[in-house]
Design a protein around this nucleic acid. Structure first.
Length: 576
DNA sequence: GTCAGTATAAACATAG
DNA sequence: TCTATGTTTATACTGA
């Protein structure tokens, strides 16, 4: 699924966010880059000489009245040279891509090195900026000597840029495809326009945002002065412009590749989900999203669904491409099954890995209310939440729960009251809800039937083995756990499985270490306070012997308490 | 067909 | 009185 040729979005982000290059690495890169530049220049010179020769020959031929056939031959020869040049530049491109893959940042082919500079406008360390300036000026000098028909010729840049756009750019260097060349304009042509609107893209926060500049300009007028004086149309500016173009092109190329990859993923998942009865799994969930997303692929601005999008929520068990409408949701009937629950896919790891997805897509999470409530509680620092905090967790974590609040909130309350695993505790700040893991785990094994070894395991061994075995079982049986992995794109299945195992083991081990019995002083904070209301059916003695908590800690983050995030957000109650 | 688990809806009680 | 919270009941669906 991964295209090894491509920088992952994560890497890209890393590149954009932090400059990881050490001066040594930069130096190496620079050397490599310069070597490449040299090669290219040699080629270009060679090509120029050939051109001159060609001109000469043509002149001679014209004088001598030679046949056009020979002219054609010469023209072909010229074409061959051009192709050779292109190949050379492609090689450069590949080389640089490989550098990227090594994590050495984006260096644009045939360009003054250090394209990282424009990549990180405003963030780059001063040291790097200085380096950038030096190298840029050095290179522009080189270019001027090597290419005397004007360094302003952006065609050269375009030729050496990414392969797909090469041809068109050669043919028409001023083609505004992808808007690359717009970078070039603000200096002179569009300056007069920009003067009127003080929202110059090169000016912000009193600083010149010309790549590598960052000169402080008190007002817009002084900025314009600075722009005209410091960034006039000269070799240096042009070179910088080229670099910026390269960066943009590179990013666009990257975007295109990622889009393609996304499309392939979606297609792949969709195909899987439409297979007849192919082991019910959360993939269904994705396929539904896939369809809605694929349908709107042409207009990216329409996705992902924003919480306020009035479209109907997509439910995990929807088979096929139909997008459920509000009404069909009701006529078809409620969705009963939560697949991940069934197969004991660890909810925390699923949520963690698909967090962004759940947050943005109005997709019903494939877990029961009870599981979700438990997860919300366990994620909290104190392992206890008020009802309102549980609500907030739901809305914060799942776009799906940002609508129909009355329905699901009722369900939450209902679940809290109904299930013995949820214990209400009177706290200083009011009533909070906690999880009785024994109770929670008690009810889960019942769902895993049909596998004698598993059942045997459950009966004979500690309770904490259950989720692990179940997860393993499910994974092996289905060979497909994850639904949408943002974190582990490489091998999601194995990745998820591994993390699931780790998580469950960690939780179990942690529990066994800390909670030996109900009366253990090491028990979680919730035990420190007395439950005001404990539901019926006190624990059996044998239950008391088992592990009391399978609290998973994998996703626990102390700073996760943004309970008020959605508190004041008006919940869309438009569905009767 | 039965049963357990779950979802949904709704009625009701209670506290602030 | 209103609202949030909590409890309970009823009904329907699903999968074992």
């Amino acid at each position: 699924m991964m295209t090894p040729q491509v920088i992952t979005p994560q890497q890209m982000q890393q590149i954009l966010q932090q400059q990881v290059l050490s001066p040594q690495q930069l130096q190496v890169l620079l050397q490599q880059q310069q070597a490449l530049m040299l090669q290219q220049q040699q080629l270009q010179e060679f090509y120029k000489k050939q051109q001159e020769q060609l001109q000469l020959q043509l002149l001679q031929q014209q004088h001598a009245g030679k046949q056009p056939k020979e002219q054609q031959q010469v023209a072909t020869q010229q074409l061959a040279f051009q192709q050779q040049l292109l190949q050379m530049q492609q090689l450069q491109q590949q080389h640089l891509l490989s550098l990227q893959r090594q994590g050495l940042l984006t260096i644009q082919p045939g360009q003054p090195a250090l394209p990282l500079q424009p990549l990180a406008q405003g963030m780059i360390p001063a040291e790097l900026q200085q380096l950038w300036k030096e190298v840029t000026s050095a290179h522009t000098a080189e270019e001027t000597t090597g290419n005397n028909h004007s360094s302003l010729d952006l065609t050269t840049t375009c030729v050496s840029s990414s392969a797909p756009s090469k041809t068109s750019l050669i043919m028409n260097p001023h083609a505004s495809t992808n808007g690359q060349l717009s970078v070039h304009t603000p200096k002179r042509e569009s300056l007069s326009h920009e003067e009127h609107s003080h929202s110059h893209p090169l000016y912000g926060h009193g600083v010149c945002k010309w790549p590598g500049c960052e000169a402080v300009c008190e007002d817009f007028q002084s900025f314009l002065k600075h722009l005209n004086s410091e960034h006039a149309l000269d070799d240096r500016s042009t070179a910088q412009c080229r670099v910026q173009m390269q960066v943009v092109q590179q990013l666009e190329l990257q975007l295109a590749k990622d889009k393609e990859r996304l499309q392939a993923m979606m297609t792949h998942l969709h195909v899987k989900s439409t297979e007849p009865k192919a082991a019910p799994q959360p993939l269904n969930l994705v396929s539904s999203v896939t369809l809605s997303k694929s349908a709107s692929e042409a207009s990216p601005q329409s996705l992902p669904h924003t919480p306020t999008t009035p479209t109907a929520p997509i439910t995990p068990v929807t088979q096929g491409p139909s997008v459920i409408t509000t009404t069909s949701m009701h006529t078809v009937g409620p969705i009963r099954r939560r697949y991940s629950d069934k197969y004991n896919v660890p909810i925390s790891s699923d949520i963690a890995q698909n967090q962004e997805f759940y947050k943005n897509a109005e997709v019903r999470p494939p877990f029961t209310y009870a599981s979700l409530i438990r997860q919300a509680i366990l994620e909290s620092p104190e392992k206890q939440l008020t009802l309102n905090e549980i609500y907030n967790w739901f809305t914060r974590m799942f776009a799906y729960f940002r609508r129909n609040a009355a329905t699901w909130k009722n369900a939450v309350r209902h679940n809290l009251s109904l299930h013995k695993c949820f214990v209400r505790v009177e706290n200083v700040k009011g009533a909070v809800w906690t999880v009785d893991e024994v109770e929670f785990q008690k009810r889960r094994p019942q769902k895993i039937s049909g596998n004698p070894s598993l059942i045997k395991n459950m009966q004979s061994s500690h309770a904490y083995c259950t989720p692990l075995n179940a997860a393993l079982q499910a994974s092996m049986a289905e060979n497909s756990i994850p639904l949408y992995t943002t974190a582990s794109m490489g091998n999601p299945t194995l990745g998820n499985l591994a993390s699931a195992i780790r998580e469950e083991l960690n939780g179990a081990m942690e529990h066994t270490n800390s909670n030996e019995s109900d009366s253990s002083p090491g028990r979680s904070p919730m035990q420190a306070v007395h439950p005001v209301h404990v539901k019926e059916e006190p624990l059996d003695p044998e239950e008391a012997e088992g592990p009391l908590s399978l609290v998973t800690t994998a996703n626990h983050s102390p700073d996760f308490d943004h309970d008020r995030d959605y508190e004041d957000e008006p919940v869309n109650e438009d569905m009767e």
